[in-house]
Design a protein around this nucleic acid. Structure first.
Lengths: 148, 148
DNA sequence: TATTGTTATACTCTATAACTATA
DNA sequence: TATAGTTATAGAGTATAACAATA
């Protein structure tokens, strides 16, 4: 079951960590080159796509970063025309952020890049196993919050 | 097959990246608190356990970090008594590093911590699925090099 | 007084470049 | 001249703390 000769390497956690880090780096490089985005920008896009709208404070906890970093992330996304910052009327301290059509299009491009990456990394697996892996990961991640 | 409502989140690559990062962070925190090790120290231990012995330059490429960083990693591991640095007789520029019994014991502790983490993260899965996930990850990672 | 967004500062990690000693 | 290890320096990324506006 476990390769005794291969300490640590043989654990599920180590394999997941290694592979996940590899994929995150790859994905980050690709959206950087193609879309001028970094990993956490994609995290903000996903959060806004899911929530529809959020304040910067809310995004900080959703994405799992410091509020000061959300400022920089939102600045860049705004420069790209991917999000709108609207000063709330009911509480003028708040900035309500939401995705623009351009932002949604960027997210679609991210999704395509991630799809390609998924196909590449699972290329050696038979189709049924690829789908099984996808489902198992879905079941596991369903029980966790989403940092970046 | 793919949840159209959940762009990016639904891809295998994103799930793997998210989960892998989470696990790496968790593992790093735990070996830091329990063993005074960081992720890359564990990478060096694994590499030495696999190779038996290696120079610092070799470790740099094996672990995927700059040679200057290997110095710091090896310094710390040497302080812990986990590795020995032996000046090579045939080429006195080289340092041949190898695991001490204490280093091997540390690696065993790392393995145990990773096992615990693996069990925790897959706790919601039936036993057969846990094993299937483990095997699928093994098949995928077998085709890749190992950075940290 | 507490909170949102922002700016200023500091810290961690890691790479690049410069240096030394051997080859 | 080239290479192994080391040291010094610099950059990226991100958090903490201080600040302004609003509640």
């Amino acid at each position: 079951m476990n390769d005794v000769k291969s300490l640590l390497r043989g654990t599920t956690a180590f394999r997941l960590g290694l592979l996940g880090t590899l994929l995150s780096n790859q994905f980050g490089e690709r959206i950087g080159a193609a879309l001028d985005l970094k990993l956490k920008h994609a995290g903000v896009l996903v959060a806004l796509d899911t929530r529809g709208s959020a304040s910067q404070q809310e995004l900080a906890t959703l994405v799992g970063v410091a509020p000061s970093l959300v400022v920089a992330l939102a600045d860049h996304l705004e420069d790209l025309g991917a999000i709108e910052r609207i000063r709330s009327d009911v509480d003028r301290r708040r900035m309500d952020l939401r995705l623009t059509p351009k932002g949604h299009a960027l997210l679609v491009r991210c999704d395509e890049i991630a799809q390609t990456l998924s196909d590449e990394v699972t290329a050696a697996l038979p189709r049924a196993d690829r789908e099984k892996l996808h489902k198992l990961l879905g079941a596991v991640t369903a029980h966790h919050k989403l940092p970046h």
